[in-house]
Design a protein around this nucleic acid. Sequence first.
DNA 1: TCCGGGAATAGACTCGTGTCTAAAGTTGTA
DNA 2: TACAACTTTAGACACGAGTCTATTCCCGGA
Lengths: 191, 191
Amino acid sequence: MKRPPEELAEKLLAVSDQLSGTDLDISVDDIAKMADVPRATLYYYFSGKEDLISFFLSDKLHRASVAIGKAVAGEGNVVERLENTLAALLKVMMEHPALCTEMPGAIKEAAKYTEVVNEAERVMLAPFRELLIEGKATGELVIEDANTTAIALMGAVNMVAMFQLVQTGTIDLENTTAVLIPQLIQGVVPR
Amino acid sequence: MKRPPEELAEKLLAVSDQLSGTDLDISVDDIAKMADVPRATLYYYFSGKEDLISFFLSDKLHRASVAIGKAVAGEGNVVERLENTLAALLKVMMEHPALCTEMPGAIKEAAKYTEVVNEAERVMLAPFRELLIEGKATGELVIEDANTTAIALMGAVNMVAMFQLVQTGTIDLENTTAVLIPQLIQGVVPR
DNA sequence: TCCGGGAATAGACTCGTGTCTAAAGTTGTA
DNA sequence: TACAACTTTAGACACGAGTCTATTCCCGGA
C-alpha cells in the first residue's frame, strides 16, 4: 500500500464511516463510486481489496486505541482499570461496529490481514494482557494464563457486542456494561 | 434445498471434512470437483452456495449437539455440568474448526444464514443459558442476565479456540481446558 | 417391450467483481 | 524546451456464481 494522498484518504474514510458492519461485503466498485474516485485509482494506492479493507479497519483501530489507552492508563486500581477498559472496548465496538463484526473474519484469515491483526493485537488485546499481568503481580487478580484470559475477555465482549448489533442494530451500552463486566470479573459461582 | 440423496450427501460431507476453516472461501466448482459431482447437480439440490455451506455447517452442528447435550444432561451439580459443557464446546471446536472460524461470519450475516444461526443458538448457546438459569435458581450460580452471560461464555471459548487454530493449527485441549474454564467460572478477582 | 415422467447432467450464457495493462496526464528538473 | 519519473485513469480481462435449456438416464406401469 502506497499511502494515499490526504484528499483521497479523507474521501475513503468518510465512505467507510457510512459503511457500518457490512464492510467486507461491499464491492470495490461501490466504494469507488461512493468516494467518487475511479476504481483504478484505488488499485494504484492499494494492492487489492484486502489492503483497502485493512486501511479502513486500521483507521478504526487507531481511533479505538486512544479510548482504550486512556482506560488502561487511567486512575484507579487494577480492577477498576480493567473494568474501565472492558467498558471502553464495548463502547468502541458500538461506535465502530466493523471492529467487532469484521475482526473475527480477519483473524481467521490472519495470513491475508497480517497488519490489521497485529494492530488489533496491540490495541485490543495487549492492554488486557498487561493489566492482567500487573494485577497478578500485585495480587489484585488471580490469573492462570494472562494471554488466554485476555483473549477470552476480548472474545466475550466481542460476541456479546456482535449479537446485539445483529439483533437490535446497536449496543445497549449502559445496561450491557453494568451486567456483563461484573460477571466477567466476578465469575459465575457465589463468593 | 431439496434434500440430497444419501450418496451425494456422503460425498459432500466427506469433502467438507477435508475443508477445515476455509469453507466459505472455496468455489462451488471446486467443491463439485472434489466431490466428483457435476456442478449442475449441486444447483439441482441446493439453492445456491450459501445453502450448500449451510448444509456443511448444519452437519457439524448436528454432530456437536450430541457431545454438548451429553455434557449438559450428564452427572454432577450445575457447576460441574457447566464445566463439562464448556469443555465439550472446546473439544467440538477442535474437531470441527469450521464451527469456530465460520460461525462468527454466519452470525454477522444472520439474514443469509437464518437456519444455521438458529441451529447454532440451539446447540451452542441454549445449553449454557439453561444451565445458568438452573444454577441461578438453585443458588449454585450468581447470574445477572443468563442470556448475555451465555453469549459471553461462548464468545470467550470461541475466540480462544480461533486464536489457537490460527496460530498453531490445532487446539491444546488439555491445557486450555484446565486453564480457561476455571478462569471463566471463578472470575479474575481473588476469593 | 414400450412409454411417460421425473431425476440428473452437460454446456452455454449472463452478470458482477477483482485485477491488470497500457495509455494519457502531470510535475519537476536540466 | 525536452525528458524522465510519477500519478491517474479508462478499458480490457479473468474468474466465479448463478441460471437456463436441452439432452440423457432411469424406473415403474401398461
